[in-house]
């Protein structure tokens, strides 16, 4: 039983991160039907900025928590600016273009960011400084660390804040209106370009936090870390129903837990025919099954294709 609890804890932590990143995908898709494949790289840049700040501040003798907070505080605006610049430079000029064009651009931006990071931070995996000492707590025989607790709490707080913003504020209403129909929203006096830019900025800010959390959790930062994480988060968004905020959260958590349980039990279930390296396969089987029976995703609504 304790093993099962441990796997669920692992999965929830992983899933919380997926969910936060997935929100970035789903928000952008919801508004302009663009799959921003460069979103994973924003997570990576966030981790890298935080890495540099922590390395610079670590010998200063500040309390570790303050160092990490400053690092996160630096990573968020940088990533927000990056998100804004990406939208302004790479996507806005293509707003009226066929859908494939911005998609390819997104892949291009992703490659550029990756190599840009490689030039600055080098090719080696960077050991993320462990300024916060990891402390484990016992939960029914399983261990949960302080870092895991922080990830769960921060992710939940961010998701709650985002949901409140989207569903309770005037700006949120503008976002939803733009998502439903940008032309009409524009006629109603909404500056849709501003709303779209803001969506990118908010998503990028959350990605920055996710980057710091992931790098801290695994103790490693690398210029390629964004792409696989981004892909998983994208799948989580699709699983929950892309364009749907609660869907992305649910999809992320679900994917994380399925992955952890899959890795933990796939060997036993198949008589060691499949090893734990097939944990991704396990996760994707779930994704495919869901999409076969509910193509719109778990919480997605069946909507007609918009041009």
């Amino acid at each position: 039983m304790d093993i099962f609890i441990q796997q669920v804890i692992n999965g929830l932590t992983l899933g919380a991160v997926y969910a936060v990143v997935a929100l970035g995908y789903t928000m952008v898709y919801g508004i302009i039907q663009l799959i921003n494949f460069a979103h994973g790289e924003v997570v990576m840049i966030g981790a890298m900025i935080a890495f540099s700040v922590i390395v610079a501040l670590a010998p200063g003798g500040l309390p570790p928590l303050v160092v990490v907070l400053i690092a996160t505080g630096c990573a968020i605006p940088v990533c927000m600016f990056l998100g804004y610049a990406m939208e302004r430079v790479a996507y806005r000029p293509l707003r009226g273009a066929p859908r494939l064009a911005p998609l390819i651009t997104a892949i291009g931006v992703s490659i550029i960011l990756q190599h840009f990071a490689m030039m600055i931070w080098g090719r080696s995996p960077l050991p993320f400084p462990q300024v916060i000492t990891t402390v484990g707590y016992d939960v029914g025989g399983a261990t949960i660390t302080n870092v895991q607790i922080v990830i769960l709490v921060v992710s939940t707080a961010m998701m709650t804040a985002l949901a409140l913003m989207v569903y309770r504020t005037k700006f949120g209403a503008a976002m939803r209106a733009t998502a439903q129909n940008p032309q009409i929203a524009g006629l109603m006096g909404i500056d849709t370009d501003r709303v779209i830019a803001a969506t990118f900025v908010i998503g990028a800010g959350m990605a920055a936090v996710a980057g710091v959390m992931v790098a801290n959790y695994y103790g490693i930062a690398h210029y390629t870390m964004g792409a696989p994480l981004g892909l998983k988060a994208f799948c989580a968004a699709v699983l929950g129903g892309i364009g749907n905020l609660p869907g992305a959260m649910l999809g992320g958590i679900l994917l994380g837990v399925v992955e952890a349980l899959g890795a933990g039990y796939i060997g036993d279930l198949t008589g060691n025919w499949f090893g734990s390296n097939y944990q991704d396969v396990f996760a994707f089987i779930v994704l495919i099954l869901v999409l076969v029976f509910r193509p719109q995703g778990l919480l997605g609504e069946r909507v007609g294709e918009r041009a």
Binding site: Q7, N10, T13, L14, T224, A260, L261, A263, G264, S276
Partner: peptide, 13 residues
């Protein structure tokens, strides 16, 4: 490319 070993290690533990 694996960085998340928690699930495997939990099983091993």
């Amino acid at each position: 490319k694996t960085t998340d070993w928690k699930a495997v290690l939990t099983k091993v533990k």
